[in-house]
């Protein structure tokens, strides 16, 4: 599956079916600090993702 980060870069996850949380943690991202969406729809962090899924990450925790 493919993960689009807020800085415009993309990463891949090839560990088989996994929840959003597990994918994020594997990338060193704390799920408390981000919101994930798939096909333009926000999904809970315990949603299972399939190998063809693409998710977009929005970081919510920053200064300003």
């Amino acid at each position: 599956m493919k993960i689009h980060l807020q800085d415009g870069t993309a990463r891949t996850f090839e560990g088989g079916p996994a929840t959003v949380s597990r994918v994020l943690l594997s990338l060193g991202v704390n799920p408390v600090e981000v919101i994930a969406s798939r096909d333009g729809k926000v999904i809970p962090e315990d949603t299972f993702l399939g190998p063809d899924d693409e998710i977009r990450i929005i970081r919510v925790s920053h200064g300003g």
């Binding site: 729809k41 926000v42 999904i43 809970p44 962090e45 315990d46 949603t47 299972f48």
Partner: peptide, 19 residues
């Protein structure tokens, strides 16, 4: 089950957006 559906809302059964 790997269906990819988001877990359902505990109050109404529609697709959840937040845990």
């Amino acid at each position: 089950d790997g269906t990819g559906r988001p877990p359902a809302c505990d109050l109404c059964g529609r697709p959840g957006v937040y845990l």
